[in-house]
Each structure stands twice: as C-alpha cells, then as structure tokens.
Simulated assay, not measured.
Amino acid sequence: MNRTMITTTNTLAQLQKQMDIISNNLANIDTTGYKRREATFTDLLFQEYRNQANANEEQNRLTPAGIRQGTGARLSQSQIIMKQGNLKTTDRKLDAAFTKEGQYFRVLIQNEDGSSIHLTRDGSFHLTPISESEMMLVTGDGYSILDENNNPIYITGDAKGYTITENGQLIVEKTNGTRQIVNLGVSLVKKPQFLEQKGANLLGLPENFAELGVPEQDIFTQLNGPLRAQIAMKQGVLEQSNVDLPKEMTELINVQRSYQFQARSITIADQMMGLVNGIR
C-alpha cells in the first residue's frame, strides 16, 4: 500500500465520524433543549524533507522550508455548542426554559449500576403518582427532577396551580389554601467540553473523569444560596434545539464531497500502482 492510500484511509475514518456527528444533530432538531455538537480537526504527524542544501537560497522565503508530506487528519474534538435556542410558547404551567446559556436542570438517573446525577435543558416537567396523596416531579422520560439539595421533588396533597419563578422556584398552590415552595436544582456549566451525551437528552461526566485530574467544581457550579440570583427561567415556554438546518445540511454536503474526493484518491492510487506494475 502506498503513502497516498495510507493518508486517505486515515482521513476517511475521521470524516465518517464527522458525518455521524452532523447526522445526530439533524436527528435531534426537534428535541427540546438539545445542544448541537461541532467537530474540529487537526493534522496527524507529517514528515519534512530538506531538499535545499544551501541555506542561503532560502532567504526571504514565505513558505515553510523543505517539502512536507502529511499522513491525514483526525477528529480532535467534538464540542457542545452552548448557544441559546429559540423559545416556543406552550402556556403549560409545568413547562419552563432557561433564558441564559450554560444553565441546566439536575436529574437523578437510576440503573443497574446505581444512581447518578445528570444534566438537561429539557424543562417539560410531569407528575407521576407515588401514592394516593403524593406525586413526584419527573422529566418526560420519567427521571426525577432534583431540588437544590439533590433530593427528588415530592408534591403532597391536592394541587390546584403551579408557578415557576424566574429564579427557579416551584410554587405549588394547594386546594386547602397552603403553598409548597421548592427550589429547583440548577447547575451552571463552565467547561462543556468535559461533558458527554448520556442519551435521552442528558449530559454527564465521562466514566474516566477521575483520570482527567480536573476538579468537578471547575466544570460546573451548583447555583444554590446567593448564586440562585444568576438563574434566568421563564414559565410556559420550552427551549428548542439550537440546530440550524441549512447550516447542518451545507456542512453535511461538504463532508460528503470530501469523502468522495478521498475515496477517489484510493482509486487513482490503485490505477497508478497497476500502471507501474505493468511496466516490463
């Protein structure tokens, strides 16, 4: 296999990953609060051949000295774009959306490996009955919404109205005239590049987080106590995804053209090798 084939094969695998990222963005264009991902590339190692024996001949040269031969490119990062999505009015009392970037609801995930806290921008809340007089606040997928102390939110008694304030308070009006006030658990993400998608429109820390050597407080901050003044939330609306369909389709076409070009390079390299091997 010649150098052209090696370089092309390396690049084809990375272009496929970029197409997968774009396809995932397009598939989630209608997902509430979804944040698109963007792929960035970097060059692989390259070799430089010094073909000029006399250094004086290279004076005032604007391009790098010698001949550089690369080995392709690789996907260096798939970063979450935190740009705010458009708000869609629903007039539903248990719908809420953030109006500032980087703020997320905390939810509790329980599976066979135990429980863990994940993050979501999906503010479409629902109530699931626990007993005859108690209900729990959950997401559309049934995950528990947490309060500022990372405890599930239980609503007792008969409720007749719900209000979600700008600073993230849930006020439940009871039929007996009393009120139940709960502070929703909100986190501010400062370094989204350390988070990974966990499915079901959730974000969380990677499994190898302990090996990264980064303190958790450097990645996100829990907006509790005086920090709750930073929360910006609106009731009766939902945040749409920040996926721009024309932009994603244009990017997908460009990646497909690059993929076709790289595949064509393999065909040409194979034809050249066939010509060389056919020389007698």
Rank of each mutant, 00 (worst) to 15 (best):
Y34S: 09
G225P: 12
K198H: 13
I67W: 03
N176P: 10
F105H: 00
V138I: 07
Y104C: 03
T175W: 13
G140V: 09
S115L: 05
S131M: 09
K191D: 13
E248W: 06
T165P: 10
E166Q: 15
I145V: 15
I130A: 00
Y49C: 02
D122M: 07
R257M: 09
P192G: 12
T71M: 01
T89A: 09
R257C: 09
N54V: 10
R121I: 04
H118I: 02
L184Q: 03
K198M: 14
L238V: 11
K174M: 13
A263L: 15
I80C: 00
E58C: 01
I80E: 01
K17M: 11
E251H: 07
I29T: 11
V138H: 04
D30K: 05
E239T: 06
N54P: 04
S23F: 05
G70T: 03
S258R: 15
A210I: 11
P129W: 02
E248S: 13
T11W: 06
G168T: 00
G177I: 10
S133N: 15
L203D: 04
K83Y: 02
F220N: 02
E207W: 01
Q18F: 12
G199H: 14
T267C: 05
L62P: 01
I279S: 12
L203N: 09
T99H: 03
E251R: 08
M273Y: 09
V214Q: 11
A269M: 11
Q79A: 15
Q52E: 12
R50T: 08
R68C: 01
G213P: 12
T267F: 10
T221S: 10
L170D: 05
L44V: 02
I268E: 08
S187P: 02
R121H: 10
D30T: 15
K191E: 15
Q217C: 07
T163I: 14
Q260R: 09
F46I: 00
E239P: 02
P152R: 05
R228I: 13
Q79H: 04
S265D: 07
D95Q: 03
R179Y: 14
N242H: 06
K100Q: 12
G199A: 11
Q69F: 00
K191Y: 00
N176D: 15
L195N: 07
I22A: 13
A200Q: 13
L127A: 01
A159K: 00
L127H: 11
G142C: 08
N54I: 10
T90Y: 05
